[in-house]
Amino acid sequence: MTKLIVATGNPGKLREMEAYLEDLPWELQLKPPEIEIEETGDTFTANARLKALGVAQATGEWSIADDSGLQVDALNGAPGIYSARYGKTDAERIQRLLSELGDTSNRGAQFVCAIAIVRPNGTIALEVEGVCRGEILKAPLGTGGFGYDPIFYVPEQRLTFAQMTPELKRRYSHRGKAFELLLPQFNQLL
C-alpha cells in the first residue's frame, strides 16, 4: 500500500475520500495538524493544488487535496471559493444566500469540486474538476448532508442533496463526478 496524505484535518473528508478510493492500493491518512496551508488561490483548482503541493512538500509523501463550493448564476458565481466563509454556520450561510437571491427567478447554480494529486517530489500528477448543475430552492428541504445541501436541488433526481441517500449523493454530486474523472487515471500513477 502506498501512503496518500489527504490535505485536510477533517476526519469526515478522509472517510469520504476513502469511500471513493476503497478498492485501490492506497492508504489514506490525514495531514499532520501542524501543517497549515493558506487557500490564497482564486479558483477551486488553484486552492486544491496549493493544499496538495504544500502537504507533499512538507511530508515527502503523495498528497491529495480538494476544494469545492457553490456558484450561483444570479450572484455572478458567488459564494464560489468563499462558500465555507459565507457565514459562521451552515444556517447563516444559507440565510445569507437566500437573502441575496431574494425573489429572482434565475435560481441556476452549480457545485464544483477540484481535486489535485501531487507526487512526493512536488510535481502535479493529476488534476480534475467535477461539476453538478442544479437550482437553489427558496427554502431548505431535507435533513441530510451539510452546508448548502438543503437548498441545492438536482432536477434530474427531483431531490436536494439533503434528501439524497449518501450513496445517491456520492454518485450525483460534484465530488462524485470529480472522482469519476479521476479514478480511471488513478491506477496509472504507481
Rank of each mutant, 00 (worst) to 15 (best):
T2W: 13
I5E: 03
P11A: 12
G12I: 09
K13C: 09
K13E: 10
R15C: 04
M17I: 12
L21M: 15
L21Y: 10
E27T: 13
L28G: 09
P32Y: 08
E34H: 15
T43S: 15
T45F: 01
T45Q: 06
K51P: 05
A52C: 10
T59W: 02
I64F: 12
G69L: 01
L70Q: 07
D73W: 10
D73M: 11
L75M: 15
I81D: 03
S83H: 01
A84W: 07
R85A: 12
R85M: 07
G87H: 07
G87I: 04
G87P: 06
R96F: 06
L98T: 08
S99G: 07
T104G: 09
N106M: 13
R107D: 07
G108N: 15
A109S: 11
Q110T: 06
Q110W: 00
C113W: 02
I115Y: 04
I115Q: 01
I117S: 00
R119T: 02
N121V: 04
G122Q: 08
G130H: 03
G130P: 00
P140T: 05
L141H: 07
G142A: 09
G142I: 04
G144V: 02
G144S: 04
G147Y: 02
P150V: 06
I151G: 00
V154H: 03
P155C: 08
T160A: 00
A162I: 05
A162W: 02
P166D: 13
P166Y: 11
E167P: 04
S173K: 03
S173H: 00
R175W: 01
G176D: 02
G176T: 06
K177G: 06
F179H: 05
E180H: 14
L182Y: 04
Q185L: 12
Q188V: 01
Q188I: 01
L190F: 13
L190H: 10
